[in-house]
Design a protein around this nucleic acid. Sequence first.
DNA 1: TTGTACGCGTTATCAC
DNA 2: GTGATAACGCGTACAA
Lengths: 345, 345
Amino acid sequence: MATTIKDIAKMCGVGVSTVSRAITGHPDINPATREKIMKVVEETGFVPNASARSLKQSESNNVALIVKGIANPFFTRMIHVLEDSIEKKGCATILRHVASNQDEVHIAAGLAAERKLKGIIFLGGNFTHDGMQLKNLGVPYVFSTIGMDSDGKDPVIANVSVDDVEAAKMATSYLIESGHRRIGLIAEGIDVPSVGQLRYRGYCEAFKEHGLEIDHRLITQVSDGEEHYTMENGYKAAKILLRTVPDLSAIFCFSDVLAMGACRAITDHGKKIPEDVSVVGFDGIEDAKYFIPRLTTIRQPVDEIARETIDMLFGMIEGKTPGRRVLMQAQLVLGESTANGPFRR
Amino acid sequence: MATTIKDIAKMCGVGVSTVSRAITGHPDINPATREKIMKVVEETGFVPNASARSLKQSESNNVALIVKGIANPFFTRMIHVLEDSIEKKGCATILRHVASNQDEVHIAAGLAAERKLKGIIFLGGNFTHDGMQLKNLGVPYVFSTIGMDSDGKDPVIANVSVDDVEAAKMATSYLIESGHRRIGLIAEGIDVPSVGQLRYRGYCEAFKEHGLEIDHRLITQVSDGEEHYTMENGYKAAKILLRTVPDLSAIFCFSDVLAMGACRAITDHGKKIPEDVSVVGFDGIEDAKYFIPRLTTIRQPVDEIARETIDMLFGMIEGKTPGRRVLMQAQLVLGESTANGPFRR
DNA sequence: TTGTACGCGTTATCAC
DNA sequence: GTGATAACGCGTACAA
């Protein structure tokens, strides 16, 4: 049987409450007694049972991190930074990874009831949710890098992200102004309220603003596998584009990972990057800087987004500041994967 | 206040135990009563408090996954597969990520005491540990993809991995037999009992078997940052090699991620891969197949390792089979990053 | 088939 | 400064 606080108490010849005080660092205790107890605790390797502890305590210091699409390196980095920040706030992170067909809010609700969460951070997934369900969470939550619709009628209010519409428009406009017209799109989730939808809108707006028509044969969507943002999916989509659109001169991908897969497909197709086909990614992950060719991409300011997310969440937890929508500045980073297109040569 | 089983009982006009029976799927209950209760449970979104539950139950169905170096895509994939398998066994995964300066066994011990674990899987980290500490865990554990020393005097007995010495020897021998002599090494952790040490041994043995001397200027080690296996570290190490070893014709890296960073450095250095410098990685991650150039690498059979790990752990949990050492077969996968060296041209 | 009462390990509230 | 004791929410033996 595992050692309990009772055993420790017996060993030290004191009461359980004294042991509890020693462990929790309570001030009302004789330093000598504490020393004695802590020594035994060390020796036995005793760790208080977390269940009993959190059962007794009305509040925990758990922050849940609900991630949809954990394989995406962009999130890996985000998770890393967020975990660090949460720890610095003296809290523990419960990392939960949800499949693309699961409802993240439902899962969060379960976790909140189970674990008495202090707050929730959603990473990835949709930005539209059932208001009732969100209310039911009963704890502060922030949507991070999930995008949001600009109409503002959404019940989700705590939200940190780049302006996905603007960012995608920036990428597409850059390609158009570089002389590209036949710009393929490797998209994801344009039919659901996600960043995919927003970025798709940005793509369309860029065309419209330049007085150009959109050819729907240029648009592909990935949806294979449980994870959508994979190199394999980017590879497959690019293959299709290359086969069906002979005069393709550029591809805009909704993530760097997709872009890398696309690059490989272009190379395999016997074409050169960027001479024959330009590629633009999205996210600005570390890998993009080392990929050959270095990717031209839209950089999301990970560290700033993480910091803002944490600040907002803990502001809400402490009741100081309400949740709000914060747009961070995305940035076009020029790499080696883009060059002028046919109309600028 | 959060809803409890008592509230549900009151709402339904039944006793708490009846509600408990309904939720846990106990057979001794009137189907009609269960229906009624479950409906209310659905409506209120009630979820039993996990703390109270696990406090009461002497055993949990939690399996801990302790990962050292979570940013490595190789582990990302492993985690994915392991989580799936654990869920299929009807258990929950507690994912815990430890920093490179933390002791994974110590953390595991804390977790075991806190959460009444069913079993532990260690991913990454060292293979030598304090036998006492391991005994103290009190639950079955398996070391996965961590390597092991062949002398067998180690207390760690449940272990699934490739033969890192053999695998590294295979990679190095391949380069030597392709006509390379000046083969740089981008290593990690050769001074600690880790896969790095084993792979380093393999590198040395290959040289020895071919009657060649080892030049220690060819050996670099990465150790920057909290995560060692990063593109950035590979990049920096390769830069140094290229600067200090003018006649370098190949580099063997202890991971694909390092290899990708190295490739970038070689390209930036104005050299061509594989014409000027060949590169061999280790792991065989998905990305290696899409990288440009496609990496020549040592593939670790992720799915098989994961399956074997799970089988062994649950065999131990059910007391059917004892822990043992299992070596999986690594495989040299030829890509586009290697070519014949000066001595075969 | 159903309800009552107890105990899991911990912390907080009291007396002492 | 310290020890006994009552909760926390749940599962379950046992009584009904």
